[in-house]
């Protein structure tokens, strides 16, 4: 009878994922939208755990919820959004959005059908993925990425690196007159470099000694 617990968990996570997904697009306040999106990510991670893919679940939380969604939230909170203005044009985009949604639905159905009826799918799956009970999925993923397909993986990494450097170069601007701290220099500074004791005769004044530090 214990088998009912994963089923309950599945329906709970699935329902929350779908409901949160709907609320992402229907929430009026963009900040609420992002928070619903985070809930959707989180429940999707729960579904991954139920599938036995705990490594992917944790990555989903650490990368998407812990880093990407934080940036979303940052941007949305910082923007000064006029909610009225935002809502006005919403229905003008409905036909286009509906078209994209329809294409996606057709593609998803085709994918599902291919999964079921494709001639080679069963054998392809079996050749790549060992049974979950045999290998921890952390190890299985590690073997696929870092041993079997290391050059492809490194290539993808290099492309991302080049893209990142490109983005930095394109948006970089050198500003003049910026005063930067040099921590090493600051730490190396001694009292003798910073001040000097001078005997001043009354009514004579003094020329400041040259700064050394």
């Amino acid at each position: 009878m214990i088998e009912i617990l994963p089923a309950i968990a599945f329906y709970m996570f699935a329902a929350v994922t779908v409901a949160a997904g709907v609320l992402v697009i229907s929430a009026k306040n963009p900040v609420h939208s992002v928070l619903w999106l985070i809930l959707a990510f989180f429940s999707a991670a729960g579904l991954f755990v139920l599938l036995g893919a705990e490594f992917l679940a944790m990555l989903l939380i650490i990368v998407y919820v812990g880093a990407v969604a934080v940036l979303f939230l940052f941007v949305v909170m910082m923007l000064n959004i006029n909610y009225e203005e935002l809502r006005e044009g919403a229905f003008a985009y409905l036909p286009l959005g509906g078209l994209v949604a329809a294409v996606l639905v057709v593609e998803m159905v085709t994918l599902g059908a291919a999964w079921q009826f494709g001639p080679d799918v069963a054998s392809n799956l079996a050749s790549v993925a060992p049974a979950i009970s045999d290998v921890e999925n952390t190890k299985a993923l590690g073997r696929v990425i870092y041993t079997d397909y290391i050059f492809i993986f490194q290539g993808a990494g290099m492309i991302l690196l080049v893209a990142m450097i490109g983005a930095i170069v394109l948006t970089h601007r050198t500003r003049t007159g910026v005063k930067r701290q040099n921590v090493v220099k600051q730490n190396a500074r001694r009292p003798e470099d910073a001040y000097a004791l001078v005997d001043v005769e009354i009514g004579k004044g003094v020329t400041m000694p040259k700064k050394k530090g």
Binding site: L35, E54, F55, A57, M58, L59, I61, V65, M77
Partner: peptide, 25 residues
């Protein structure tokens, strides 16, 4: 006794930032 226990701890501590951002906003 999770197979990815350390990642779980890391994930939960990285989620902690939401309580703070949400309260601030």
């Amino acid at each position: 006794n999770l197979n990815v226990g350390i990642l779980y701890v890391l994930a939960m501590s990285s989620l902690g930032v939401y309580g703070i951002i949400m309260s601030g906003w």
